[in-house]
């Protein structure tokens, strides 16, 4: 049992490392690629790899969302945007050294910040001591919902989820306000009206 569970942990870590390496490769590919169709495809691959990493971390709910939104719908929307704007990225005007320096320093500071955090999945970490034990022990019997993610999301943290739903709603309204045409007209007419205004 002991050696078995240890080999499972090693296998999980190996899978995570391989997936993260592939994600790094995809990110470098995205940064180097000038063809935006390729960038969108690599972005989809990146999202699928992220979803797989989340499955390895046992966060199946998030993985499902990432696969459906990140790899599915975002890719379709970005392809639609490329269709409207054109398929190649223009050459940058500025040299990349200053942004690279800022990104490197910020990244180094973030990595330095993680050194102060408790070890990954440490049960004694403060975040696992606060309300999480109550949710885990009381949740199933109080809400009658065995999936603790659903219990926290829809019951304990219902106000947050209401806010999130409003955020999604507001985003949709914003996109409609920006992009919707008031009346379906002939494209010619519409063109001319655009030019007049």
């Amino acid at each position: 049992m002991g050696t078995g569970s240890r080999s499972v942990i090693i296998l999980e870590e190996l899978t995570a490392v391989v997936l993260l390496t592939l994600m790094g490769a995809a990110a470098i590919g995205i940064a180097r690629q000038r063809n935006l169709f390729g960038v969108v495809m690599l972005g989809g691959i990146y999202s699928f790899l992220m979803a797989t990493v989340l499955v390895v971390l046992d966060a199946v709910d998030v993985a499902m969302t990432e696969a459906a939104v990140g790899a599915g719908i975002s890719t379709v929307l970005l392809l639609g945007a490329i269709h409207l704007t054109g398929g190649t990225e223009s050459k940058p005007i500025h040299r990349p050294w200053l942004p690279l320096f800022v990104v490197a320093v910020t990244g180094a500071m973030l990595v330095y910040g993680t050194l102060g955090l408790p070890a990954f999945s440490d049960p004694k970490a403060p975040i696992h001591q606060h309300v999480a034990p109550r949710y885990l022990t009381e949740g199933p019997e109080k809400t009658g919902v065995p999936n603790v993610v659903t219990a926290v999301l829809a019951s304990y943290r219902s106000f947050d989820t209401l806010g999130e739903t409003f955020v999604v709603f507001t985003a949709g309204i914003g996109v409609i306000a920006l992009l919707r045409r008031r009346t379906p007209r002939r494209p010619r007419e519409h063109d001319q009206e655009d030019r007049k205004s």
Partner: peptide, 15 residues
């Protein structure tokens, strides 16, 4: 089935 397994309104809506 979101009450018992992974899933819920957001995921189902996206699907």
């Amino acid at each position: 089935h979101g009450d018992f397994g992974p899933g819920g309104g957001f995921q189902a809506g996206v699907i």
